[in-house]
Design a protein around this nucleic acid. Structure first.
Lengths: 236, 236
DNA sequence: ACCTGAACACCGTTCAAGT
DNA sequence: ACCTGAACACCGTTCAAGT
C-alpha cells in the first residue's frame, strides 16, 4: 500500500517506539483482532489498545466503526483469487472464483457476518464484481440477467458463510443446532424429522451443489425486465 | 398464547399496576421495540424499562440476549402465511409461501438481521420447514434435494431481506450504495459501470425473479448424495 | 494536524439482598 | 420463586486540552 518514494533512514535504530497511525495499520490490526477473537471481540477500543493509543485517536482516520468495517471487508477481499485468463470454460472459472470468495469468508470468523451488514464498495469488491460480470457475459448471459445474477451469487455465498460462522460461534456452537433438531417431534413434523441428518451433512460439497443449482437457474431464467428490445420503460 | 383456564375477576379494577412478567410479554414488548427502533434500539435494558423493571429481572425468564432473539424470531414468524390446502400448483404455492416469509422479514426492520444470526428452531420455524418440504415433495423433488433445497431457499430469502434492511438502516441508507456506485470508474470497471442502474432496479420483482431462478435450478440439480437407489450408504 | 484523557450515554450479565 | 439495586466490565463517540 506504500506508494514508496524511497526514504533515507533517519535514525540509527529504526524501531519507532510507536508505529505511526494510518488507515492501513488500523485496518490490518483490526483484521488481526477479528481473526483471533471474532466479531464479538472486535471494538475500536481494542484496536486502539493494540496500537498503544486511545480510541479517540482513531477518529482522525475513521468516521466511525461502520467505516472500519467496510475497510476491513474490502481489505480482506484482496485474498480472493480472481479467475485466470481463459483456459477453463467460463463456468468452471466462475465456480472456482465463487469458492475462493467463500473460502476467504470462511477462513476468518466474523468476516462473513461483517459482509452481511456492510456495503462493500472498495476496489477489491469492485474487482470481484467486474470479474464475475465478465464471466457471466462470456457465458452468454444477457446484461440484465448478469447484474442480478452476480448479486444473487454473491449474496448466497456471503449468506452461507455467515450462517456457518454462527454455528461455529464460540459459545453456542453446532451443539445448539443439533439439540434443536434432535428434539423435533416425529408426529408433528414428519418430513423435518426424516431429513434431520441430510440437513447436517454435506460440508463443503453443499455450497458447491447450491452454486451449481443457482447457476443452472440463472442460465434458464427469463430476463429481469420486460423483454422489449430496450425501450425507454414504456409499459406494455 | 394463554392456555385459558377461565378465571374469575378478582379485583374491581383489573388494571394491574404492573403487568406480571412472562416470556410472552417480554418477547412481544421486545418485538414492539424492534418495530419502532430497529435492531440497534433493542436492548435488554430497554425492554426492561418498557416493562417498568430492571434488566436483571428478565434473567428469570431468559438465559441471555441470544435466547430473546431466538424467541422473537420465532414469534414473528407466526405471521408467515402457510400454504393453503392444495388448489394452486405446488410451485405457485411455494412462491407465495416464500414471498410471505420475505414480507414478514421486510416489514419490521432488524428482524432479518436477527434471522441471519439466530438459529430458529421454535414451532413456527418448524412449521415453515415442514410446509416447504411438503411442497417440494409434492413437486417430485427427492428427499435429499428437498432438504438442501429448503435450506437454500430460506437462506436466500433471509439474506435478501437482511440486505435490504441494511440499505434502509436509518443513518447510512440507500444513499451510500448510490454514491458508491456513482463513483465507479468507467475505465477500470466497465461492466460494473454499465449495469449500475440495473443493479438498483427491480424492487419487488427482483426477489421473485431470483426465487424462480433458484427453484428452476433446484428442479434440475443433481441429487446431493451419490444417486444409488437408496443403499444404506455403502460407497459405490 | 495529530493525539490524548476524561467524560457521556449507553451495553449484557452477575450477585447479594430483599420479599 | 421472583424481583431488585448496585456493581462489574465493557461499548462508540465527543470534546476540550495539549503538542
Amino acid at each position: 500500500m506504500n506508494k514508496g518514494t524511497p526514504r533515507e533512514i533517519v535514525g540509527r535504530r529504526t524501531r519507532p517506539a510507536k508505529a505511526p497511525l494510518s488507515r492501513d495499520v488500523i485496518v490490518s490490526t483490526a483484521l488481526d483482532i477479528l481473526e483471533r477473537d471474532g466479531l464479538a471481540g472486535l471494538s475500536l477500543r481494542r484496536v486502539a489498545t493494540a496500537l498503544d493509543t486511545g480510541a479517540a485517536s482513531l477518529y482522525v482516520y475513521l468516521a466511525n466503526l461502520d467505516e472500519l468495517h467496510a475497510l476491513m471487508l474490502d481489505a480482506a477481499l484482496a485474498a480472493v483469487q480472481l479467475p485466470k485468463a481463459r483456459g477453463l470454460p467460463w463456468r468452471n472459472r466462475l465456480k472456482k472464483f465463487l469458492l475462493s470468495y467463500l473460502q476467504v469468508l470462511y477462513e476468518r470468523p466474523g468476516l462473513a457476518q461483517l459482509a452481511m451488514s456492510t456495503i462493500a464498495a472498495g476496489p477489491n469488491s469492485l474487482r470481484i464484481w467486474e470479474g464475475m460480470l465478465v464471466l457471466l457475459t462470456e457465458g452468454g448471459v444477457e446484461d440484465g440477467k448478469a447484474a442480478w445474477g452476480v448479486d444473487l451469487l454473491i449474496l448466497y455465498v456471503t449468506a452461507i458463510a455467515a450462517e456457518q460462522s454462527n454455528w461455529r460461534g464460540q459459545d453456542q456452537g453446532l451443539g445448539r443446532v443439533k439439540s434443536a433438531l434432535s428434539a423435533v417431534s416425529k408426529d408433528e413434523f414428519p418430513l423435518v424429522f426424516a431429513i434431520k441428518e441430510t440437513l447436517l451433512s454435506g460440508g463443503n460439497n453443499r455450497a458447491e451443489w447450491a452454486l451449481d443449482a443457482i447457476i443452472d437457474g440463472l442460465l434458464g431464467a427469463r430476463k429481469p425486465s420486460a423483454s422489449k428490445a430496450r425501450g425507454k420503460g414504456g409499459k406494455e
